[in-house]
Simulated assay, not measured.
Amino acid sequence: MAGWTPRNAGAEIEQEPTPVQSCGADGDWYCARIARGEANFEAAGEEAQFELTAFADKKAAQDACQKEKSWSAKYTKAEVPPIPDVASNAYYRNGGGLDGLYLTMCLGTVVAEILLEGEGSSLDPATAHSLAQVFVPRIQKAAAAS
């Protein structure tokens, strides 16, 4: 990404993914994931983390998105402009050593997240939106190739 310096990245494949039916209604939203990857960048003192969680099918991903949205309802909503053709949820989170703006997007069998680290509600939602506009087409291109 132009202007952003990569800091680190990683990926992992679940050797024995948990079946969706074993997750239960109150389970972690990522319970049935089959793979996860992340990349971290920095620019002008801001840090951004991109995370992808892949699921075996679209229904499992949609269920995960709904669980994540329900779970995050306890936090302050962030007004991030909508990303065309993508279901998304944005909120500010401050707790457990984490302070930042989270943007979660549901794209087919993938749940994608952007986390901007910083001083919580002082972060500009426009930054998350502009990063999402870079991230989403890359996810769609990768999904179309698989």
Rank of each mutant, 00 (worst) to 15 (best):
M1L: 14
G3S: 04
W4D: 06
W4Q: 03
T5C: 01
R7Q: 14
E12Q: 13
E12W: 10
E12D: 14
Q15D: 14
E16Q: 06
P17R: 10
P17Q: 07
P19T: 05
P19L: 11
V20S: 10
V20K: 04
Q21N: 12
C23P: 07
C23Y: 10
D28P: 15
D28F: 13
W29I: 03
Y30S: 14
Y30R: 00
C31K: 04
A32C: 09
A32T: 07
I34H: 02
I34C: 02
R36V: 03
G37A: 13
E42W: 02
G45Q: 01
E46C: 08
E47C: 12
Q49M: 15
Q49C: 09
E51D: 14
L52S: 12
T53H: 09
T53K: 02
T53V: 10
K58L: 00
K58A: 06
A61P: 09
C65N: 15
K69F: 08
S70T: 15
W71M: 14
S72W: 06
S72P: 09
A73D: 11
K74Q: 14
T76G: 00
A78Y: 01
V80N: 06
P82T: 09
V86C: 01
A87N: 13
N89S: 14
N89P: 15
A90L: 05
Y92N: 01
G95P: 13
G95S: 05
G95E: 11
G96V: 11
G100K: 11
L101V: 06
L101P: 07
L101S: 06
L101C: 02
Y102V: 11
Y102G: 03
M105L: 15
L107Q: 01
V110M: 03
A112N: 04
I114H: 00
L116I: 07
G118S: 09
G118T: 03
G118F: 08
G120R: 06
G120M: 03
S121C: 07
S121I: 10
D124E: 10
D124W: 01
P125W: 03
T127K: 11
T127I: 15
T127N: 09
S130K: 09
A132S: 00
A132L: 00
A132K: 00
F135M: 06
F135T: 02
F135A: 02
P137G: 11
P137N: 07
R138T: 08
I139L: 05
I139M: 12
Q140Y: 05
K141Q: 13
K141Y: 00
K141C: 04
A143H: 01
A143I: 04
A144N: 12
A144Y: 02
S146Q: 15
